[in-house]
Design a protein around this nucleic acid. Structure first.
Ligand code: FES
Ligand code: FES
Lengths: 150, 150
DNA sequence: CTCTATACAGACTTAATCCTCTTAATACTC
DNA sequence: GAGTATTAAGAGGATTAAGTCTGTATAGAG
């Protein structure tokens, strides 16, 4: 469904959102990668995608890190998904046939395009502000488990 | 969403279904791979999965090939998907967190588990008999385009 | 019995994704 | 200005998915 990079990007975004709601600082990637148990270098690359997509602002040096450029209620999970995985997910034929569309549908096009659209709406409806607040209120998890290497 | 092997498996199943409705022969994989423009060897491997899953019966030698063991209205696209890609698709957390379930939900679990279930129902509701008939009636496409190598 | 058409099995290659490492560049602190 | 904490950039390794090839087994046809 989503690439690993994309799920990591979403988890990181939720983390950044949570930190931003506490204090308006740049969030360092090193700290984030420890809390989320995501490889630092990999996470860095993913967040660079969000930066070059214009979603994040980054700052080097001490007290540096990343933060969102727009207010959290104006950014949705869809923005993150599109920045990392692109729009293909919401356009592709379930059976892998080229040129998915109503003109030349496949056997499952009607049903699939509907579900696909609902997935789109699901992501679009999740702002970072709301989602982050919901996580805090209900104490939901959003970090990967620590991997024990013994 | 689905692996390539899985989409090929579905397309091949629809082809076998169509041929079976015409005459009750074994369908040779070579012919199938030409019509669908899928690599013969790759398709062979995929169909072997369906055979060892008990969905297909195969016959070697001239006039050999594969055919479905059960009547077409008793086989659904879900059977194909599960035989090739397994159940993971219908069980995994959208954000990649382990142990998706109502007990320890993530921020999108409610919505996603619903959509996921609908996808399951979509596949489950598509029998080969119906789907194949629909393709014939509406003249829907179900083969990959021929790749020109010039 | 021999020949041919087919599925079966498994090794191998290629390509994509996932992840790591090294070397910059930059901004703050003293 | 020197030192340090951070991101940026890109090379490269590891793992998995996708696809190819070669050979073997088996069933039917003559
Ligand atoms: S053509 Fe297959 S889902 Fe649209
Ligand atoms: S826990 Fe994330 S979708 Fe179920």
């Amino acid at each position: 469904m989503l690439s690993k990079a994309c799920t990591y990007g979403i988890l990181a975004s939720l983390y950044i959102a949570r930190e931003s709601r506490k204090r308006d600082n740049y969030v360092p990637i090193g700290q984030m990668s420890e809390k989320l148990n995501i490889s630092f270098h990999f996470l860095t690359k993913i967040l660079q995608q969000l930066t070059s997509a214009g979603l994040l602002a980054s700052m080097k040096g001490p007290k540096g890190g990343v933060r969102f450029k727009k207010p959290l209620h104006e950014i949705t999970l869809l923005d993150i998904v599109i920045a990392i995985d692109g729009m293909e997910l919401f356009q592709e034929c379930l059976l892998g046939l080229p040129g998915c569309g109503d003109e030349e549908p496949c056997a499952v096009h009607n049903e699939w395009s509907k579900l696909r659209e609902e997935t789109y709406v699901l992501f679009k409806g999740k702002t970072l502000a709301e989602t982050s607040a919901k996580i805090e209120d209900l104490n939901l998890r959003f970090a990967l488990p620590k991997i024990m290497t013994d």
